[in-house]
Structure formats: C-alpha cells, structure tokens
Amino acid sequence: MVFQISVFLENKPNRLYSFTKVLNEADINLRAAMIAETGEFGIVRAIVDDPDAAYDVLKKNNFTVKKTQVVGVEVDDAPGNLSEIARVLGDDGINIIYIYAFSISGQNKAFLILKTDNITRSRDVLADKLGLRIITQEDIIKL
C-alpha cells in the first residue's frame, strides 16, 4: 500500500511554490505529483518518501492536507499495460477516479498510482488477474 499526500490549493501564483517550499525545507523528497484543477482551486497529489512527515509539516504550516491510501502497481513500460488495468478493473465494477504514473530510470518499469472507489478490491484484482506487483511505501523510499 502506498500513501499519497493531497493538498487543497487556491489557483493563484506562488501557491504551488509555498507547498513545495515546505516539503523542501523539511527535506522531504517528491517522487511524483499531479495537479487537478478547476478555475479557482486545485488539488495537488503527491507521492513522497515520507508521507507522515510530509503530512505533519504541511499541517503545521496551515495547509489543508489529507493522507490517503492509493494503489501502486509496478508495470512494464510497454504499450497496452494501462489498457489491461483499466479493463480488468472495469470488468470487476470498479470505478477509476484518477491515475498517474512515473517511470523508473534505467529499469524500463513504471509505477502506476491509482485512486479507485474500492482500493482494497482493486489491489486484489490487479494482483490476482494480472499478476502485477503491488508496490509498498518501501519501494517508494528505495527510489
């Protein structure tokens, strides 16, 4: 299981910087991040090496922050893999809310982060039906 840090940010100059600055000063390493936005605000979702520390330091700095569980899987960096994942989850009636991915340098592998409406079930389906390796926080730290 992987923990993700989500932060509510107003959509205006310097807000992303204020977020990254806090992490930087606490010596927390960002492994991956994505931003979803509407006109006025956005949500930054990030995978970091130490989510507990990140949560604490962001909270201390008055950010609206949540630590949420997501599914992380390791896939070969090859065509068709995401398609397969989407298919098996869909066949199982699981709704994907969002996905983001990052590749691992020199390994021809990618880590896929998934948020679905049923995290535990998604993990089981992906492991059982596609034989994918479920990544853990340890994998993130080792990157």
């Binding site: 993700q4 989500s6 509510f8 979803a36 509407t38 605000f41 949500i43 979702r45 609206t64 922050v65 949540k66 949420t68 809310i97 948020k115």
Partner: peptide, 15 residues
C-alpha cells in the same frame, strides 16, 4: 474557507 472536515482528496466533494 474549506476545512479539513470536508477535504478528502476529492474534487467533486468540494464542487
């Protein structure tokens, strides 16, 4: 102002 009570990583909830 949004509060942590409502914020749970979901865009839809805030909208």
């Amino acid at each position: 102002e949004v509060t942590e009570e409502i914020f749970n990583d979901s865009m839809g909830d805030i909208l």
